[in-house]
Design a protein around this nucleic acid. Sequence first.
DNA 1: TTGATATATAAACATATGTTCATATGTTTG
DNA 2: CAAACATATGAACATATGTTTATATATCAA
Lengths: 110, 110
Amino acid sequence: MKVEEIQLNTEDLIGNLDPEKLEKVAFILKTIAHPMRISIIGLLSVNEKLCVNDICEKLGSEQSLTSHHLANMKLSGILGSVRDGKNIFYYLKLKEVITVITCMNKCQLI
Amino acid sequence: MKVEEIQLNTEDLIGNLDPEKLEKVAFILKTIAHPMRISIIGLLSVNEKLCVNDICEKLGSEQSLTSHHLANMKLSGILGSVRDGKNIFYYLKLKEVITVITCMNKCQLI
DNA sequence: TTGATATATAAACATATGTTCATATGTTTG
DNA sequence: CAAACATATGAACATATGTTTATATATCAA
C-alpha cells in the first residue's frame, strides 16, 4: 500500500503556465479524459504491465478499440510498451496521471 | 502563499471507479482539457472572482468565445457565477481542478 | 426612455474524436 | 512453411468540439 505525498503550492505553480506548457497540459488532460482510458490507467496503476488481451478481458472491451486507445496514449507519452513474444505489454510511463485521476476521484463531482 | 497537502493512496482510490463515476471524472477532465479554460482556471485560482471583461483583457481573448467557455465550465459545475450590476463575476466552484492542473504542471510532460 | 456597456446566445461551420469493420503485420508452434 | 494467435493499422463514418459572426438580452446612467 503505497502512499504518495504531494506538496502543492497553488499560487505560483498555476500562474506560470506559458503558452507552450499550457498546450501540453491541455493535451495530456485531453488524452486522459475518456472513461476507457481512465480504466486502462486504473489497471496499470495496480498492475505493473499488462498485455492488450489482458486489458480487453478485464475491461470487456474489443481488441481494435482497445488497441487504438493504447496507441493514442502511447503517442501522448502516457504509456510505454514492450514486446514479449506474441504479446505486447503496456505500462504507465507518466505516472503522475494516477495522481490526477485519484484527485478527481476524491472530490464530489458536480 | 497557501500550501495544500494531499495524501494519495493510489491503490484503492483509482480501482474503485464505478462506471458512473468514471463518466463523471472523464467529463470533468474533458472540460478542463483546453488551453484557454486552463488559463481561466489559473486566473480564478489567484483572483477570487473575475468578470468576463477582466478575463478577456487578461487573456487577450474575444468576448463571445470567452463567454462560451465560461458557460461550458459553469454547466459542468467547475465555475459558478454571480451578477453584480452590469457585470457577471465568475468564480471557481470545483477547486480541486487547481490541484489537477498544478500536478500536471509539475511533471515534465513527454 | 435612449444610449452605452456587459454579457449571453444561436447559427453555421471546420475540425477533431471515438468507434467499427476489415485487413495487415508480426510471432510462435507444429 | 502453414496455421494459429496477438496486436496494429487504415478507411469510413457518426458525433462532438471549438470558433466565428451576428444578434439578443440585461443593466445602468443621463
